[in-house]
């Protein structure tokens, strides 16, 4: 078969909704796009542990602490599912780590914001995980098999993340005046960055068209963002809180909520490394990797020793 035949077979599979698997022929750019997207996604899960890790030691009760630990452990697991999925495309784990640690690879900008109060644990679960779920549910049907399977697993686990976050806010919103104020301030801080999680608007997202053609993406950034706004408004009302957007208004004609303009300058600033915590996050990751070197060395040495020993025993026997 010629490259053109391979390309044609690939296009047909995509059109017929047949999943692409690791050893199938795929266009170079499809592979590259997926490696970029899946590894960014994995990095986001891993870096995403940091803002919440900040509160594990200060969770207000044992219940909250156990829940937060379980959630952070899930994020680590999600990172690992995704790294494995990316590895099926021919990039190594170490290469991906290096891209993260040298700042070459991006991760979701949301994790470059600080978590300054306990209410932020609630807002992150509700809004940040809520936005992530909106994205991830759509990706369960992405065309690359290992990515789709990882997404299915992740989505099953994410639901508790959002519910536990909402529960934190719900409980605080029934509390004292100070607690209610903490909730509102936290929502004010996290609302706009959560909307930014869906990425640039469609007319500024050059990769969207090709990704839609390849069925890597199923919906555009703006479609998913709108869907998120529509479901979140009602949830906010139940909390008795306000979303910080004076332009937010039901549009009968569109059947959707209208909302205000995102501050894209802030978005690009954080993407390009100038957010409040970009440096801190990368430093923490790099430090964890370097501090763990002796563990990796020791495990390697131990396995070598065991191999040697079992060789000797076989000889002796």
């Amino acid at each position: 078969m010629t490259v053109r035949d391979f390309q044609q077979a690939f296009d047909e599979k995509i059109d017929r909704e047949i999943a692409i698997e690791p050893r199938d022929w795929m266009p170079d750019n499809y592979r590259k796009t997926l490696i970029r997207q899946i590894s960014q996604h994995a990095h986001s899960e891993i870096v995403g542990m940091l803002p919440e890790g900040n509160w594990i030691t200060r969770a207000p009760s044992l219940r909250r602490k156990a829940v937060l630990l379980a959630k952070v452990q899930d994020e680590a697991g999600h990172g690992l599912y995704l790294y494995s999925a990316a590895e099926t495309l021919g990039i190594t784990r170490d290469e991906m780590y290096e891209q993260l640690h040298t700042g070459k690879a991006k991760y979701s900008s949301i994790f470059n914001y600080p978590t300054t109060s306990w209410a932020d644990m609630g807002a992150i679960g509700w809004l940040v995980d809520g936005a992530a779920i909106m994205n991830q549910v759509a990706l369960c049907r992405t065309s690359y098999g290992p990515y789709a399977r990882a997404m299915v697993r992740i989505c099953k686990e994410e639901s508790f993340h959002q519910r536990q976050g909402y529960e934190i806010l719900l409980q605080m919103s029934k509390g004292t005046e100070i607690q209610r104020k903490m909730v509102q301030e936290s929502i004010n801080r996290w609302w706009w960055p959560s909307l930014m999680m869906f990425g640039p608007s469609d007319d500024n997202s050059p990769n969207t068209e090709q990704s839609m053609r390849w069925r890597v993406k199923r919906f555009t950034n703006d479609e998913l963002r709108q869907r998120f706004v529509d479901v979140t408004v009602e949830q906010c009302n139940i909390l008795g809180m306000k979303l910080p957007d004076p332009a937010l208004k039901w549009n009968e004609e569109r059947g959707h909520y209208d909302f205000g303009e995102i501050n894209w300058e802030e978005f690009w600033n954080v993407v390009n490394g100038n957010g409040p915590c970009n440096k801190e996050r990368l430093d923490a990751r790099t430090k964890a990797w370097e501090d763990g070197q002796w563990v990796r060395d020791a495990a390697l040495a131990y396995s070598e020793k065991r191999k040697e020993r079992s060789k000797k025993e076989t000889k002796a026997a």
Partner: peptide
């Protein structure tokens, strides 16, 4: 099957 670039220090 994942096709791995060989990398000496990476765990199997």
């Amino acid at each position: 099957m994942p096709e791995q670039n060989s990398n000496k220090n990476e765990w199997p």
